[in-house]
Amino acid sequence: MSAAGANGGRVERLFWGVGSAVVVIYALLPVAWIVSLSLKRSADLGDNRFLPRVVSLEHYATVFRDPQFSAALWNSIGIAAISTLAAVLLGAFTAYAVVRLEFPGRRLILAGALAIAMFPPISIVGPLFNTWRTLGLYDTWAGLILPYMTFTLPLAIWTLAAFFREVPWDLDKAARVDGATAFQAFVHVIAPLAAPGVFSAAILVFMFAWNDFLFAASLTSTDQARTVPAAIAFFTGSSRFEQPTGSVAAASVLVTVPVIIVVLLFQRRIVAGLTAGAVKG
């Protein structure tokens, strides 16, 4: 009985171990390949080896020497940060109102938000291109921030609403009686308790804005607002006969690193927030 149990446990552990390994390798192999490519010398790019023969940083140097890339990096950081901040702030207020206030159209807001999130972005790129050109938003930061917020606000609202629902309403009332304005109660009591939700929402929004290629490629034309994913597509080789493979790989690694750092930084807080869960006083 106990032997069978131990045996079953071992088989189960093996199953999960192998399963996890397969998934991790499957997911990380392309990343590893890109990292490897970015570290090869230009001459070695086509050598069909997984590990670079000689580690070289020449592609990184090239990428940073290219004024296009540093402009794109700055655009990416700025646009993603502003989109995140604005979407989370607006999302927080909306989610709070939806959860805590009784007003007509409450369900409509949630349903509408969900519908927008389901909308295929490609279908609005065309109209948006024309509209933005008329409005003068083409090739500007705002021209990208607006669609990013449109597509990420629903996510932020739904995530935050779920977290706000977990906060006991009595705490809000207690704060109001303790002398807080509705805004102070939100800032001092509700928002800190929903912090894990705020971080989850922020990560989702940031990733969307940071990774987006479709809007960035369609709604920008110069270094004015072009973000890194779009800029990479416009990389050229040092001569017309050379593929810019190395530079593309180096730039890809450079844009992936911040996302990984962000996730690793906030993941802890998210997990801690979810497991603590002891909101009820």
Partner: peptide, 14 residues
């Protein structure tokens, strides 16, 4: 300027 004690106590957990 009234103070209230709630059934759930409603003390701030953070």
């Amino acid at each position: 300027n009234m103070a209230m004690v709630f059934q759930s106590y409603a003390i701030y957990p953070h």
